[in-house]
Amino acid sequence: MSIRFELVSKRFEDREALGDISFMVEPGEFVFVTGHSGAGKSTLLKLLALIERPTAGIIEVFGERLSKIPRRQLARYRRQLGLVFQDHRLLMDRSAFENVALPLRLDGYSEEAIARRVPTALAQVGLGGRERAFPAQLSTGEQQRLGIARAVVAAPKLLLADEPTGNLDPQLAVEIMELFVSLKSQGTTVVVASHDLPLIQKIRRRTIVLERGRQIDDFRPEDAHA
């Protein structure tokens, strides 16, 4: 099992962001989490990335109970993840190459491996040849794709993407989703938070629907792949 949520709740001071969420995700599975703005999609991803801790319930990732991971082990846990952020979170004073190389450098890959992997990851998101560009020289959509390249470059065990196609045109959004789907071949489990229903319908994968912090549906289209 890649992910197990059991009656997970998250309460902020003045409101309940998530309540009694339970689901399981198999290794290599692709899952959409959808819902309106404020439904709790981002909070769910933050719980998986250990940016937030649940108020109640159990979360397990790759058999490891997240509540048992101490602060000093956060880095080790997060190096298994690929994170795509809504606000990209790029380092503006580093080139596209250096941004994408960051997870590989933190993991201690050799310079040869980095030189090989980074251009490939950039090419996968349509930024081939833009290695030397700085984020400020890229459009918002290109910055989004740069963030995606950084998330996939180290072949993470779990990819968490928060509205990864928000700034992309529909065709490019589909290509990015296909890239995510293709990560199954390397065993990556993918959780994508998105409110882009046309895209979700087009990709046809398992979808968990949230509404005001509650899980109201968890369905797999009849012809969906795992």
């Binding site: 000093r72 880095a75 997060r78 298994q80 993840l81 979170r89 790029l90 997870p103």
Partner: peptide, 16 residues
């Protein structure tokens, strides 16, 4: 600060 937060999210240790 923002760069530090990003590095931590990418799995950088406190020491790094």
């Amino acid at each position: 600060r923002e760069e530090i937060v990003t590095l931590k999210l990418l799995g950088a240790t406190d020491a790094t």
